[in-house]
Design a protein around this nucleic acid. Structure first.
Lengths: 229, 229
DNA sequence: ACCTGAACACCGTTCAAGT
DNA sequence: ACCTGAACACCGTTCAAGT
């Protein structure tokens, strides 16, 4: 019954516990104090292994990103880039907190820089100019990390599969359709063709559209921006 | 010297004060307590006019978005969409807190829905199918709100215009270039062609690339997704 | 070396009470 | 109606002290 701390804490144990806690309860539930009690330790003990909460978050991101597997050899630049991005997306789906942690993080850790560099290297290896690669990295944006910024949500379209809506709900939908006809039309079409929006499909659609666009610019000899004009 | 509260608080006064405070000191400095003292009132007085902090943030976003001016008449769908998005971007540049508030906000207020609907309506009015419009809205992502997700930062390229780097800094840059050659190459090119990265230019580049891509899909008769296959 | 106790300076929010 | 006082249940972080 003597539950004295066997091994002294180290950075990895702190990060692993933090990741477990965030996986289980979400990032909002991850506090220095909560993490400390999870580890059976006072909050201040953590500060020997982590500079502050920002460093904790950065360390968590790093621990995940460092595990990204490289694409199989022999792929073209577009397929290789696509593969790297979908690997990042897998990690994102496995760790729901990862997206917010990446967006919030202010540090550029080695693993994070490494992933960015690996993606850019695929494009350069494919023969794209430095300028075009630069544009592509910006255009890909957070897609480099496997997520698209969902600024567009179709509203209250799919609450359930085939549940009869209440009169109140129907009235609200009708009012919505009057005030926001375009959004309503998209939501209706989306619901008609099989429930709510296919997020993965939208992600891949835009990813491929961007990769195609840059392939086309590359083939047409695009290599420098307006400074040449 | 009698500074008794002249007019009783109302929602608009609360929102205006919150926007002023956020414009001045940043969103991190905006707390219910701080806002209350700014208004010469106890924190709890705010809760008569605002449900909670989330509602406050949503109200601030709404107050800004409601002011977006519509595009001039007679533009084509692509130009009109472009105009709406650049108007949103102007607001973003005027209110540095707006971006974070939009990302964090969980409510879909009338003004927010209205802007989304207006953008979607431009595309539909241009003849794009509902499906294609749906894809376009997802592809535009946060660009609808005037910002691109800056997941790619070129690292410590431009600290100053022509300042001689210290030996320590040069050594670090050299080490960076070794470990992250692709990112370093982009940063170097970017610095060579005139200082740091042109964020506005990158925004417009990707925006136009996306609008072109959807115009091309539209012209080529693209109208439904794989369900037709 | 590694961890603790006590404290500082904050948060958002509720509830009963005042005017 | 509108606002206040006191309190609750939290935060991240510092500093001096313990073992």
């Amino acid at each position: 019954m003597s539950a004295a701390p066997r091994t002294p804490l180290d950075r990895e144990r702190v990060l692993v516990a933090a990741i477990e806690l965030a996986d289980r309860d979400g990032l909002a539930a991850l506090s220095m104090r909560g993490l400390a009690t999870e580890l059976g330790v006072t909050p201040m003990a953590l500060y020997k292994h982590v500079a502050d909460k920002d460093d904790l978050l950065g360390g968590m991101v790093d621990a995940v990103v460092i595990g990204y597997r490289p694409p199989p050899a022999g792929l073209g630049w577009a397929a290789a880039t696509r593969d790297r991005i979908l690997v990042a997306r897998d990690a994102l789906l496995a760790h729901p907190w990862l997206r917010t942690a990446i967006e919030r993080s202010t540090r550029r850790t080695p693993a994070v820089l490494g992933h960015m560099d690996a993606v850019a290297r695929e494009l350069l290896a494919g023969g794209l100019s430095v300028d075009l690669t630069h544009h592509a990295m910006h255009a890909l944006g957070h897609r480099i990390w496997g997520f698209s910024p969902e600024a567009f949500d179709e509203g209250p379209a799919a609450t359930g599969p085939a549940v009869e809506p209440t009169a109140e709900q129907s009235a609200m939908m009708a009012a919505m359709a009057q005030r926001y006809p375009a959004v309503a039309a998209i939501a209706a079409e989306s619901a008609a063709t099989g429930g709510s929006c296919d997020e993965q499909g939208e992600f891949e659609f835009t990813l491929d559209l961007l990769l195609d666009a840059f392939a086309r610019l590359h083939q047409s000899g695009w290599s420098s921006r307006r400074r040449s004009g």
